[in-house]
Design a binder for these strands. Sequence first.
DNA 1: CGATTCCCCTGATAGC
DNA 2: TGCTATCAGGGGAATC
Length: 280
Amino acid sequence: MPELPEVETVRQTLLEYLPGLTITGVNVHLARIVKYPEPEQFAKELVGQSFRDIKRRGKYLKFVLSGEQTLVIHLRMTGQLRYSLPTEPVLRHTHIIFSLSDGHELRYTDIRQFGTMYLADNRQIDEISGMYRLGWEPLTDFPLADFAALLKGRKRAKIKSLLLDQHIIAGIGNIYADEALFIAKIHPARLANSLSSAEVARLHRAIVQVLRAGVKMHGTSFSDYVDGLGRQGEFQHQLAVYGREGAPCPCCGSEIVRQKIAGRSSHFCPLCQPASEHVN
DNA sequence: CGATTCCCCTGATAGC
DNA sequence: TGCTATCAGGGGAATC
C-alpha cells in the first residue's frame, strides 16, 4: 500500500531513467484506470511526448511532459510502475504499457485495479486530478503552529482519522499513521482537540521522523509494494506496531493490540499509548 | 458541516 | 477438496 515514502521511492527510481525518453506507444488494456481523458485520447496525446521531470504531491506521481502536459498516476492500494525490458515476462494484472524510445517499457500493474491516471495541460492537471484539494506536504510544508491550531478546532474527530485525511496532510496512510502515533505515544482514538501542546509537538515530530525514515529505507514492502525497478523496500523490518498484533511492544514488551478505529484497523501499544494523556 | 459507511477490486485466509 | 464469508485499504460518493 504505497504511502508517501513508497511513492517517493518510485519517483526517485524512475527519475534515473525516464527524463529525456520519448513515449513511442501506449497500450491501455484496462480502460477504467484512465480517468481523464478518454483512454483513446489519453494514448494518442501521450505518444510523441518525452519525460522532462517527475514530481510528487502526497501519494500522487506527476510526470511532467514535453508538450506542456502532466501525466498524473495514483497507485492507490496495489499499483506498481516498473521500468522494464520488453523481454521480461509481463506480470499478471498489467493494465497499461508505455513503450519508450530507449527500447524499454514503463509497465503499470495493479491487482486491485484501484489505481488512477490523468493526463491534462499543466495548468489544468491539479483541478482534473483532484490534487488541488490536498493538504500539507509533510516533509516540506508542515507548520507546527497551523497543525496545532487545526487539531484544536476538531472536537469530535479521532486523531487517527485526521492523520489519514489527505485534505489535511497529504501522503500518510494506515502504516505510517500507526507508526507515528506509536512514536508520539498517542492512542489512535484520542480526540484531536484533547491533545496537549506537548503531544501535538511530539506527533508533528513523529510524523516527519517516520516518513523520513521510510524514504531512507526505500519504503515498506508489507504486501505488494515495489519500487520502479521491482525492488522491495526495507522499512517493514522496522515497524514497531503495524502488522504486529500480539507481538511485544519494542518499548515496553506489552502485546500490541489491533482494533478498528475510525473505520481502519489500528495497531498500538495499550501501555505506551494510553487512552488519555499520561501526565508524569 | 462533519463523521461514518459503502463501494470499487482481487487475493489470502478462516471456517465449514 | 472446495465452497463461501471476511478482510485488507485509498479515496470519493452517498448517507447519517
